[in-house]
Computed example of a mutant assay.
Amino acid sequence: MCGNNMSAQLPAIVPAARKATAAIFFFFDLNERLHGWVETLSYIRTPHIKYICPHAQIRPVTINMNMAMPSWFDITCLSPEAEEDATGIKLAAETIKSLIDQEVKNGIPSHRIILGGFSQGGALALYTALTTQQKLGGVVALSCWLPLRNTFPQVAANSANKDIHVLQCHGEADPLVPLLFGSLTHEKLKSIINPANVSFKTYPDMMHSSCLKEMMDVKQFIEKQLPPID
């Protein structure tokens, strides 16, 4: 696979029911197993879109007592002031950009590709979209935050996605990635891309997980940003 921080495992794919004219990359949280989210994506899928779920490399994660687990980058602690793994975040983003390039070579233009993810995966989706020269179709950012937020808007000034549409979703009862992280991210996003294109939806009683209402909101966003073209 492309990049040094990918595992040798091939991505899990939910294929389009007919000819794929759009794609979604969906990135999981650290130490997550693919099965649950692949099943969820299958439930909300649209016939002309294929869903690609790459595997993160197994690495020690500081916040989890240095245990080795699938992770896109290291996390030291969950705090707005925490020191971040800048090298790991940037390397993961470059890996995703390479995967997008591969999909473009396969015939799906980048503006017909959405990046999405949950928690650490959502953080990676946001960072990648705001630092790439690939014009993308949107971002779905679930229960997450914007990594390396202090380097924006300087980095984003060179991005091809200043007008990208972003759907942010967050549980109001999230004990792991507090709603405050989502709120701060929303305010930051509105300062660096077109604020009219950033939607932030919250869900009462939802913890660090998902719910049917959130998935229906995600489905509606995807269908609006990636309509059928044939």
Rank of each mutant, 00 (worst) to 15 (best):
Q225L: 08
G117M: 03
T131P: 04
D29N: 13
H165P: 02
L167I: 10
G88I: 07
G3A: 15
S183A: 12
Q120D: 13
T46N: 08
A23V: 06
P15Y: 13
I89H: 08
N5C: 14
K219R: 11
L176K: 08
L91I: 12
W145V: 03
T87N: 04
I13D: 06
Q154H: 12
I89C: 07
L142W: 03
K50C: 15
N161Y: 01
A86H: 12
S98A: 12
L180H: 10
K97C: 03
S110K: 10
L148K: 12
L78Q: 07
Q225A: 06
G121M: 05
N5H: 11
V139G: 07
S143Y: 01
H170P: 14
E214H: 03
Q154P: 01
L124C: 02
G3M: 13
N64F: 09
N150Q: 04
P195Q: 01
F152Y: 12
N5S: 14
S159A: 09
E187W: 00
N66A: 15
R45Y: 13
G121L: 05
L41E: 02
I49E: 08
P175I: 13
T151H: 13
H170A: 03
M6E: 13
A17V: 12
T40K: 07
L10W: 11
A156V: 09
A125H: 01
Y127S: 00
K90L: 10
L126E: 02
N158M: 03
G107F: 04
A82M: 11
L130E: 01
M65N: 10
H186E: 05
P70T: 03
P70V: 01
P15D: 13
D205Y: 07
M67C: 10
A92S: 15
A196V: 02
L136Q: 04
L148P: 02
F28S: 11
T151P: 06
H55Q: 05
I193H: 00
A156T: 12
M65I: 07
Y127V: 05
A12H: 14
L180S: 12
E172A: 14
I44T: 00
A160P: 01
P70S: 06
K201T: 01
N194K: 10
E172L: 10
V61Q: 00
A125N: 03
D230P: 09
A82I: 09
K97F: 01
F25L: 13
H48T: 04
P11F: 12
S183W: 04
